[in-house]
């Protein structure tokens, strides 16, 4: 077996192990789904009345934002899972085995991607219930989901780096989430970036999250307000979004593998 197929095979063994846990402790998945459903209801029925982007159906506008926020927050599970394995000494056991050094991380990010797939099915159904629709062809819609999942996978590696850097599961639980609030709210997910103050606008326009949201709106055929912006990223969201995801992977895969090599039980 070549080094790469070996790493993939080891990664799948670890991913299967993680998914068995999801199957046996479904509560975790249920609660990670409740939160975004709650967001859909809050924004659609509570804030939706106050946020009036011009010429836009807010519930259609909202769903791409919620989808992206959901997978971004979902990535925090990667940090928690790894911190838990570290604390219980399971990472030590893995590190003493002649397996690929990337396998535990590949396995974890893969199983979290599967988690995200399940949550996204639920979210899409939830969106359909509140009036969200896909207006373009299946191919475009599929590409829309691919952009979202590429971002989810990249964020999972960012989260892996966090999970291997913190001192306990408790810390991972807040460190994994806290930075996602500014990232998801300083974007076009819930409000058009043109409504932000002038100095926040470029930050929001270039926020990786915004380009994913804009891509999804474009590819699902949900009317957004991105074209009001002058930023290049908002006029070429798909390229920008995939570019960001690739960049995050290029930075955080090697970084987290380095963290893993030096990981010590605390």
């Amino acid at each position: 077996m070549s080094v790469l197929t070996q790493a993939a095979a080891d990664g799948m063994v670890v991913a299967r192990r993680n998914l068995i846990k999801v199957k046996r402790v479904p509560d975790l998945l249920i609660f990670t789904t409740i939160q975004p459903v709650m967001f859909v209801l809050l924004f659609a029925y509570v804030f939706g009345g106050a946020i009036h982007p011009k010429g836009v159906n807010y519930r259609e506008f909202l769903m791409a934002g919620i989808f992206t926020q959901t997978v971004a927050f979902g990535s925090a599970i990667t940090a928690i899972g790894l911190a838990d394995d570290l604390q219980k000494g399971i990472i030590d056991r893995f590190r003493s085995l002649p397996m690929a050094r990337s396998a535990v991380l590949v396995g974890r990010t893969t199983s979290d991607l599967v988690n995200n797939l399940i949550v996204m099915v639920v979210m899409s159904l939830c969106g359909l219930l509140v009036g969200w629709r896909i207006h373009r062809s299946v191919g475009y819609a599929l590409l829309g989901y691919i952009v979202i999942f590429a971002f989810a996978f990249a964020m999972s590696w960012v989260s892996a780096t966090i999970g291997l850097s913190v001192s306990s599961v408790e810390v991972a639980q807040s460190a994994g989430f806290i930075w996602l609030f500014p990232v998801s709210f300083l974007s076009n997910a819930f409000v058009p970036t043109s409504q932000l103050t002038r100095f926040l606008r470029p930050i929001a326009d270039w926020n990786p999250m915004s380009s994913v949201v804009a891509s999804a709106r474009e590819l699902f055929g949900n009317k957004g307000t991105e074209k009001l912006s002058t930023a290049w990223s908002m006029h070429h969201p798909v390229v920008t979004a995939l570019g960001w995801s690739l960049l995050l992977l290029l930075i955080f895969i090697p970084l987290s593998v380095r963290k893993y090599r030096a990981a010590a039980t605390r």
């Binding site: 070996q6 299967r16 192990r17 846990k21 402790v25 219980k88 399971i90 030590d92 003493s96 397996m99």
Partner: peptide, 29 residues
Amino acid sequence: TIGMSGQNAAVDEYLTGRENLDMIGNLYH
């Protein structure tokens, strides 16, 4: 070449005993 058993039993709580050992066997290829 080695086997190691650390200070806290590093077994996965959500797997069965058999699944735990089978997983390690797979990781030893």
